[in-house]
Amino acid sequence: MPFMKSLPDTANVREIFGLKPELRRAHGEMGRIIMRGDSELTPAERETIAAYVSRINRCDYCYGGHSELAKSLGANSSIFENMFDDVDAVPVSEKLKPILQFANVLTLQPGKVSQAHADAVYAAGWSEKALHDAILVICRFNFMNRLTLGHGLDPAPENFEKRAASMAYSTGPQGKE
């Protein structure tokens, strides 16, 4: 149940941005570039990172929508069956694992990120640019998770698929988030 009377019980992220419409466009456009712009990381991989960060932050709202979105983009659906915490226990590609491990540290113990975490990402075959792209996804979802949790949005699992469809970032520069 949202913490503010000015938000309806069923409020979503779009309604949060309705409180400050002047920010919505810039924030949405940035999301489109981070999540769908040119990158070595596929959109499905970026959505998997988004879902993972949301999972370890225990943000059911973002986890629900972005795990559905990852699946719809071709990520292995069994990754998400058990709401994964342990990267080694789920069938993500070996190549993506060091990025998810980097995401775990940067999300839960941000001051503990070290060169060794970055080197593990490079050793898996990713470039520095790919790591930068992954960091932006991790940062964005540490923002979004706190935006939805801080407003008390209802995760509303019955809406996960609908929300995933509405977040497909397919609507051009306006974004739809």
Binding site: F102, L106, T107, P110, G111, V113, Q115, A118, L131, H132, I135, L136, I138, C139, R140, N142, F143, M144, R146, L147, G150
Partner: peptide, 14 residues
Amino acid sequence: CYFNFMNRLVFGHG
């Protein structure tokens, strides 16, 4: 939210 993003941008890039 903005600073939870910025702090991680800084840490993530060392």
